[in-house]
């Protein structure tokens, strides 16, 4: 059993256009690819290179570039290497195709990304909410959603003012700077 990514994989992948392969080490390969070609790539990797295990799908919100990055982590039990395939899709409308027909674990990750980021996956078996069934706000993992501001708006906080602290404060000591002020100073 080879412990490295097989060289013929490279030749195989050259069939796809617009692909950039970077080898991080003997077990990690990073592939950047156009969004349209990803299903072809996954089909090749699964069907001909033995990458049968979809370890994770991650969504990264690049708000400044108004793009979502989708990262597919694929593991091959035979060549014992991990391929991470990166694609970029437009943030608006944020629609992509599901890879459920190739990898069944995709159903969970796509559902998760849908409720956390609002990316819709066409062809995914279930796009209903799973974790946030009782959440009416925007998809919370998007960068524009400020969780701290939402919390401060929604909840009150208990004031912690024990007598000993009051005494110290009167003498000029204690917490001179509130945590809010301290945070604002940071750039």
């Amino acid at each position: 059993m080879s412990k490295t990514v097989t060289p013929w994989l490279d030749n195989l992948l050259q069939e796809i256009e617009g692909i950039e392969i970077r080898r991080k080490d003997s077990r990690r390969v990073r592939i950047d690819i156009a969004a349209d070609s990803l299903p072809t790539l996954l089909e090749l990797l699964r069907g001909r290179a033995g990458y049968v295990h979809l370890s994770a799908i991650t969504c990264v919100d690049w708000i400044d570039e108004s793009q979502f990055e989708l990262v597919y982590q694929l593991w091959s039990y035979e060549s014992q290497s991990l391929v991470s395939a990166h694609i970029r899709i437009a943030r608006d409308p944020g629609v992509y195709v599901s890879v459920f027909d190739l990898y069944q674990p995709a159903a969970f990750f796509e559902r998760d990304i849908h409720e956390m980021f609002g990316v819709y996956f066409e062809g995914s078996p279930d796009m209903s909410k799973f974790i946030l069934t009782e959440w009416n706000g925007p998809p919370p993992m998007r960068k524009e959603f400020d969780a701290e501001a939402w919390v401060n708006e929604t909840f009150e906080r208990k004031e912690y003012q024990p007598d000993w602290l009051k005494e110290i404060t009167e003498q000029g000591g204690g917490i001179v700077k509130s945590p809010e002020e301290a945070r604002q100073k940071k750039p």
């Binding site: 994770a56 991650t58 990262v71 982590q73 674990p105 159903a107 969970f108 998760d112």
Partner: peptide
């Protein structure tokens, strides 16, 4: 763990792939 840094003092994105996210659901 998939961790992305944009060079700042905080992570830009952390994704946690818990093993049970497969086992307990599908």
């Amino acid at each position: 763990y998939y961790v992305v840094s944009d060079g700042g003092d905080k992570p830009y994105r952390v994704h946690i792939r818990g093993p049970s996210s497969m086992h307990a659901v599908q």
